[in-house]
C-alpha cells in the first residue's frame, strides 16, 4: 500500500432514534481502487455513503478525505474537494434536459455568476460555457448518450437515466466517485455496459471508485477490495476471493454455507 488513503472512515456510528444504521465502522479506500460495499438490505450501505457525501452526519466517528477531516463539512462543499456520487433511487433534475443536468455537474468548476451570466456575451460567460460544453460532450460520447442530450431527463427510460446520473457525477471531475447500486434494475446487457464504464472510469479516467452493488458477479469481477456490512457492522473486508471465503459472510450475508456461494447470492440479490 503505497500512498495514503484517499478516503478513511474511523469508528463511524449513525443512529436514527433507536435504529442503529451504522455501528463503529472503520475502513479506508486507496487512491486508484475500485472498492465495493456489499451486504443485505438495510445493512447500512447507503447510510455509509451518505456519511461520506454529507447527506448524513455520523453520530460518532470521523470521515477523512485526502487526509482532511470532512465529518462536519457542508455537502455542497464536498463537490469542490473532489467527491461525486450517484443515488440508489434516481435523483436527476427531471425537468431539465440531459445536457443541462450534466452541465450542473460542472457547477463548482464554473466561475461566472448571475451578473456576468445575464450579460453572457460581455464578460466571458459564453466562452466559459462553450469550453465546458466541449468537455461535457466528451462525457456524453463516452457514455453513448448523444442521441438523448436534448431530451428532458424525466422522460427517459430507467437505464438511460442511470447513465445520465453517472454522466452528471463524472462532470464534477471527482477524484472519488460514489456509486450507489449503479446496476440495480438493469438487464444483463445494460449491466455489462455499466461495468465497462466503471472500469474505464477507474483505469482511463483515473477515478477512485466506491461502489455499492448487489450483483455478486460484477462485484467479484471489477473490485479490488470489498467490505461487507451486516446490521450496520463491518463483518469482513479484503479481496473478493478472501471475502467470499469468509465464514461470517457466508452465514450472515448469504444465509447458507454452500459451495456455489457467489451464484446463489447473485440470484438472491437480483430484483
Amino acid at each position: 500500500m503505497a500512498a495514503e488513503p484517499i478516503l478513511a472512515a474511523a469508528h463511524v456510528s449513525l443512529r436514527f432514534g433507536g435504529v442503529r444504521a451504522l455501528t463503529d465502522v472503520s475502513f479506508h479506500v486507496n487512491p486508484g481502487e475500485v472498492f465495493s460495499i456489499i451486504g443485505p438490505n438495510g445493512a447500512g450501505k447507503t447510510s455509509m455513503v451518505n456519511c461520506i457525501s454529507g447527506r448524513y452526519r455520523p453520530t460518532e466517528g470521523r470521515v477523512l478525505f485526502d487526509g482532511r477531516d470532512i465529518t462536519h463539512l457542508r455537502p455542497s462543499r464536498r463537490a469542490g474537494l473532489g467527491i461525486g456520487r450517484t443515488f440508489q433511487n434516481l435523483a436527476l433534475f427531471g425537468h431539465m434536459t440531459v445536457l443541462d443536468n450534466i452541465m450542473v455537474g460542472r457547477h463548482h468548476l464554473l466561475r461566472h455568476g448571475f451578473a456576468t451570466g445575464m450579460l453572457y456575451w460581455l464578460g466571458g460567460a459564453q466562452r466559459e460555457e462553450l469550453a465546458h460544453r466541449r468537455e461535457v460532450e466528451e462525457i456524453i460520447d463516452f457514455l453513448e448518450i448523444q442521441h438523448v442530450r436534448k431530451a428532458v431527463a424525466g422522460t427517459l427510460p430507467y437505464g438511460l437515466r442511470k447513465r445520465v446520473e453517472l454522466a452528471r457525477a463524472i462532470a464534477l471531475k471527482p477524484k472519488l466517485i460514489l456509486l450507489d447500486e449503479p446496476m440495480a434494475g438493469m438487464n444483463l446487457e445494460e449491466k455489462e455496459d455499466m461495468a465497462r464504464y466503471i472500469l474505464d472510469l477507474n483505469e482511463e479516467w483515473g477515478m477512485t471508485v466506491l461502489m455499492i452493488e448487489h450483483d455478486m458477479g460484477v462485484v467479484m469481477d471489477i473490485s479490488h477490495r470489498v467490505m461487507v456490512l451486516d446490521f450496520g457492522r463491518k463483518i469482513a473486508e479484503g479481496t473478493p476471493e478472501h471475502v467470499m471465503a469468509d465464514e461470517h459472510v457466508r452465514r450472515a450475508y448469504l444465509g447458507q454455507a454452500d459451495e456455489a456461494v457467489a451464484e446463489d447470492a447473485a440470484e438472491a440479490a437480483a430484483p
Binding site: 457525501s53 454529507g54 447527506r55 457542508r74 455537502p75 455542497s76 462543499r77 464536498r78 463537490a79 469542490g80 461525486g84 456520487r85 443515488f87 435523483a91 436527476l92 433534475f93 450542473v104 455537474g105 457547477h107 463548482h108 452528471r168 464534477l172
Partner: peptide
C-alpha cells in the same frame, strides 16, 4: 438534495 451534492449551496 442532489443539487447540494453537485456543489450548489
Amino acid at each position: 438534495l442532489s443539487a447540494e451534492i453537485m456543489g450548489i449551496n
